[in-house]
C-alpha cells in the first residue's frame, strides 16, 4: 500500500479528481481535455507549493517514508562491482551497517552505510538500522582498508541512533563511536558523507566525519530525534513537531548553520518518487567531489577536514 502523509492529502485529492475526470471522459467519450489540462496544472502547482515548503516535522516524515531508497539500493543504482565485506574481526558482523569496495564511474571506492531494512523481517534482521559497536568497528576496519589502498570513502547515513542495549554497552558503544570520530578526522583518503534518510546523534556521526558532508533535501540531522527531544524537554511525546522546529534539523537549516557542506536536491515529492534520478544526482555529486578531493595533498586534505569541524560552534567571548 502506498503511504500518503497528511500534508500530501491535497495532492492525493487532486490526483483522485483527475482520475475520475479521465474515467468519465472515457465512458462518455466527451472531450474533457481542457478540464484535464487545468487540473494537471493545478496539481503541478500544488505539488510545488507543498514539497518546496515542508516543515521540519514533514521532512522527518519524508525521511522515514517506507519506500525511500536505502544504502543497498543506492549501491545497486550508483555502483558496479560491489563486493560486500563483513565483520569487525572481533565480535561479529553487524547487519545494521553494510559496506565494501565498489566502483563509481571510473573510481574504485569504499562505500559504507546504515541499512534499515524494508519490511518487518528485514528490519528485524537489520536491527532497524541501529548499529551495535561492532558495526562502527566494521566501518572503521573498512575505512582503514580504503586508506591502505588509497581509495576514497563514501558513507551513507540513515539511522535513528546507535542501538541502546545491554550488549552494546558491554562492548563499548561509546568507545566505538568515539574511536571512529578520531580516526575519521585523520584518515589519509577523501571521505564523502551523505545523509540519505535520518541522521540521529552519535549513531549518525559515527560514520559522518568527512571532507564533504551532504544531506539529501528531505532528510534530517541532529543531536536527538524530535520524539526523544520532546519526551526529555517537554516530558511528553506530543511536542515532536515543535521539537522538530526547535532543533533546526532540516537540510536547509543545517546548511545555513554551516554544519554541512551542501544539500543534494531530491526529485519533486521525495527520493522514493524517482530513485533512479536520485541515485544519478548523488553519483554526479560524489564523482565531482572525488575528482576535486583527489587533487589535494593528503596533509592538506586532513588539515582542512579538521579545521572545518573545529570551526563549528557559536560562542560569545568577553567578560
Amino acid at each position: 500500500m502506498e503511504t500518503i502523509f497528511d500534508f500530501e492529502k491535497p495532492i492525493a485529492d487532486l490526483q483522485l479528481q483527475i482520475d475520475k475526470v479521465k474515467q468519465v471522459a472515457e465512458k462518455t467519450k466527451v472531450d474533457m481535455s481542457a478540464t484535464l489540462l487545468e487540473l494537471d496544472e493545478k496539481l503541478e502547482a500544488k505539488r510545488k507549493e507543498i514539497y518546496e515548503n515542508m516543515t521540519g516535522w514533514q521532512n522527518v516524515q519524508m525521511s522515514r517514508h517506507p519506500s525511500r531508497p536505502q544504502t543497498l539500493d543506492y549501491i545497486q543504482m550508483m555502483c558496479e562491482n560491489f563486493i560486500e565485506l563483513h565483520g569487525d574481526r572481533t565480535v561479529g558482523d553487524d547487519k545494521a551497517i553494510v559496506g565494501g569496495f565498489a566502483t563509481i564511474g571510473e573510481h574504485s571506492v569504499m562505500i559504507i552505510g546504515h541499512q534499515k531494512g524494508k519490511n518487518t523481517k528485514e528490519r528485524q534482521y537489520r536491527n532497524f538500522g541501529m548499529a551495535n559497536p561492532e558495526g562502527y568497528r566494521k566501518a572503521l576496519r573498512l575505512m582503514k582498508l580504503a586508506e591502505k589502498f588509497n581509495k576514497p570513502v563514501v558513507t551513507l547515513i540513515d539511522t535513528i541512533g546507535a542501538f541502546p542495549g545491554i550488549e552494546a554497552e558491554e562492548r563499548g558503544q561509546g568507545e566505538a563511536i568515539a574511536r571512529n570520530l578520531l580516526e575519521m578526522s585523520v584518515l589519509q583518503v577523501p571521505i564523502i558523507c551523505i545523509v540519505i534518510g535520518e541522521g540521529a546523534s552519535g549513531g549518525a556521526l559515527g560514520i559522518g566525519v568527512g571532507d564533504r558532508v551532504y544531506m539529501l533535501e528531505h532528510t534530517w540531522y541532529s543531536v536527538i530525534s524530535p520524539e526523544s527531544c520532546s519526551s526529555i524537554l517537554w516530558r511528553s511525546w506530543d511536542y515532536k513537531e515543535k521539537a522538530a522546529e526547535s532543533l533546526k534539523l532540516t537540510s536547509e537549516n543545517m546548511l545555513t548553520n554551516k554544519l554541512i557542506d551542501g544539500v543534494i536536491p531530491e526529485p519533486l515529492g521525495g527520493a522514493h518518487n524517482n530513485p533512479e534520478k536520485m541515485a544519478a544526482t548523488i553519483k554526479e555529486q560524489v564523482l565531482t567531489d572525488i575528482k576535486d578531493l583527489l587533487k589535494k595533498k593528503k596533509d592538506k586534505l586532513v588539515e582542512e577536514r579538521i579545521d572545518k569541524f573545529c570551526h563549528m560552534g557559536v560562542v560569545i567571548e568577553g567578560s
Binding site: 568515539a178 570520530l181 578520531l182 578526522s185 585523520v186 546523534s201 552519535g202 556521526l205 559522518g208 566525519v209 540531522y221 541532529s222 543531536v223 536527538i224 527531544c229 526529555i232 524537554l233 526547535s246 532543533l247 533546526k248 534539523l249 543545517m254 548553520n257 554544519l259 577536514r305 579538521i306 569541524f309 573545529c310 563549528m312 560552534g313 557559536v314
Partner: peptide, 16 residues
C-alpha cells in the same frame, strides 16, 4: 540539546 546539531559536532571537534 538546546544547541542541537552544534552540540553534536562538538563530538567531532574534540575528537579531531
Amino acid at each position: 540539546m538546546m544547541e542541537a546539531a552544534f552540540s553534536l559536532m562538538q563530538m567531532a571537534k574534540t575528537s579531531a
